[in-house]
């Protein structure tokens, strides 16, 4: 009975990919591109909205589930200069100004998931903990999407 209650309670929660510890940050559309070929790394994307009246800064991320999945997560930005693209590590993290949304999307800012110990297949859900400069954390469910999806799991390029 207790278990049923917990399940019901879970169902009552608004549909969201986040289980956050602070309500001022809202994460939407969190997804990771399925592994390609034998590659043991890929990229993750999301929308981060700061509902707070002060700026926040995303400073790190770690994979927490599934338990057997090991890998490193870096915050990267793809920068273009006259047709040459390079990836920059965001060493100072990503600023999310008060009241604004930062969109992590292909050819732009992204989480780089690397040195993974297994391939990510469509349908999997990866839990990633996001660490902010004010010491709050958000645990976000990232859906693994098919390769041919581009801007979210739902929208094709």
């Amino acid at each position: 009975m207790k278990r049923l209650f917990v399940l019901l309670l879970f169902n009552l929660l608004p549909f969201s990919t986040t289980a956050s510890t602070a309500s001022s940050i809202i994460i939407d559309d969190a997804w990771v591109r399925a592994s390609i070929g034998n590659m043991m790394h890929t990229a993750g994307y999301m929308h981060i909205t700061n509902m707070d009246s002060i700026d926040h800064r995303l400073i790190g991320a770690e994979i927490v589930a599934p338990h057997a999945l090991i890998g490193k997560v870096d915050l990267h930005q793809t920068v273009e200069d006259s047709g040459v693209f390079r990836m920059q590590l965001l060493e100072e993290g990503l600023l999310i100004p008060a009241g604004e949304t930062q969109i992590l999307q292909p050819k732009s800012t992204h989480l780089m998931l690397m040195e993974l110990n297994q391939k990510l297949t469509p349908g999997m859900v990866i839990k990633i903990i996001l660490r902010f400069a004010n010491q709050t954390t958000h645990t976000v469910d990232f859906q693994v999407c098919k390769l041919h999806h581009k801007f979210s799991c739902a929208i094709q390029p």
Binding site: R33, G37, H76, T78, M114, P157
Partner: peptide, 17 residues
């Protein structure tokens, strides 16, 4: 290059589509 996590897959998907 295949280790390229963002720009290459995105561009190749675009090309194929």
């Amino acid at each position: 290059y295949s280790y390229c996590p963002d720009i290459c897959p995105t561009s190749l998907i675009q090309m194929v589509r």
